[in-house]
Amino acid sequence: MSLGNSLFNARKKSGMSQEEVAERLGVSRQTISKWELGETLPDIRQSKKLSTLYHLTLDELIDFDLELKEIEEVIEKTSEEKQKKIDWAKVWGKRYPILTTYQDQVDAESYKVKLQEMLDSLKVKYGYSNEDSFLVLKDILARIWNGSQR
């Protein structure tokens, strides 16, 4: 996505018009339009003002993805109580059917034992809680999947 699209989406998400943004930054509406169309770029000072105005970091502003931001907000606003009521395997199973069928094919118990050992190791070695151990192990698996072992 281009910087112009990111600026447009961030502004729309903030509920502001080009005129309102221009007024707050002390520039013309045409300047905002040119930034959003990718005809020109804001300088670093204006970019910082935009990020503050839209409540984003500069990195977030540069790569602003409206759909991703909305998903993040839904997750942040969802209470733990609600999250516990969600059958995540069923929800994700709509996109990844293997999550609803593997139980009949995979000896899950043998994997549970190994995974539990890893979770216990994280708890003992680093003093993590059950939840933190799970999240760390999940993140490690995600990094392996993404090929970005750091």
Rank of each mutant, 00 (worst) to 15 (best):
E60Q: 13
Q116P: 03
G38P: 09
V124F: 10
I75S: 01
Q30N: 15
L41K: 08
D107M: 06
V113L: 12
S133M: 11
E76S: 07
F64H: 02
I75M: 08
S6N: 01
R150P: 05
G147N: 13
S129A: 02
L3P: 02
E72Q: 11
K125A: 01
K112N: 12
I140L: 13
S2L: 14
K77P: 04
T78F: 08
V113D: 11
K123Q: 05
A89P: 00
R45G: 13
G15L: 00
T40L: 04
I144Q: 11
F8K: 04
L137N: 00
Q116F: 13
L7D: 04
S79I: 06
M16V: 03
L135A: 03
E72P: 03
A142R: 11
L25R: 07
E67N: 08
I86K: 00
T31V: 09
K69G: 04
A89I: 10
L56A: 01
K34E: 11
I98D: 06
L141V: 12
T31L: 11
K94D: 02
Q116G: 13
E117Y: 03
I32N: 03
I71A: 04
K125D: 06
G147F: 12
S133R: 06
S148V: 15
D65Q: 10
T101N: 09
L119M: 06
Q103S: 04
L37D: 13
Q103H: 15
I62G: 05
Q149L: 15
K34R: 09
Q103K: 14
L56G: 01
P42K: 00
S14R: 05
K82A: 10
K49Q: 13
R29F: 10
G127N: 06
S17D: 13
L115T: 06
V27H: 00
K48E: 08
I140P: 03
K13E: 14
A22V: 04
E20Q: 07
R29Y: 02
S121N: 14
T57F: 02
E19D: 09
Q83P: 07
T52I: 08
L122N: 00
K84L: 10
I32D: 01
D107E: 14
K49H: 09
W145M: 15
S148H: 15
K49V: 03
D87P: 02
V113N: 11
E20R: 14
R150G: 01
G15T: 13
K138Y: 14
L119I: 14
D107N: 13
V124M: 11
L68A: 02
V136S: 00
Q116E: 15
L141E: 12
L122H: 06
Y111M: 10
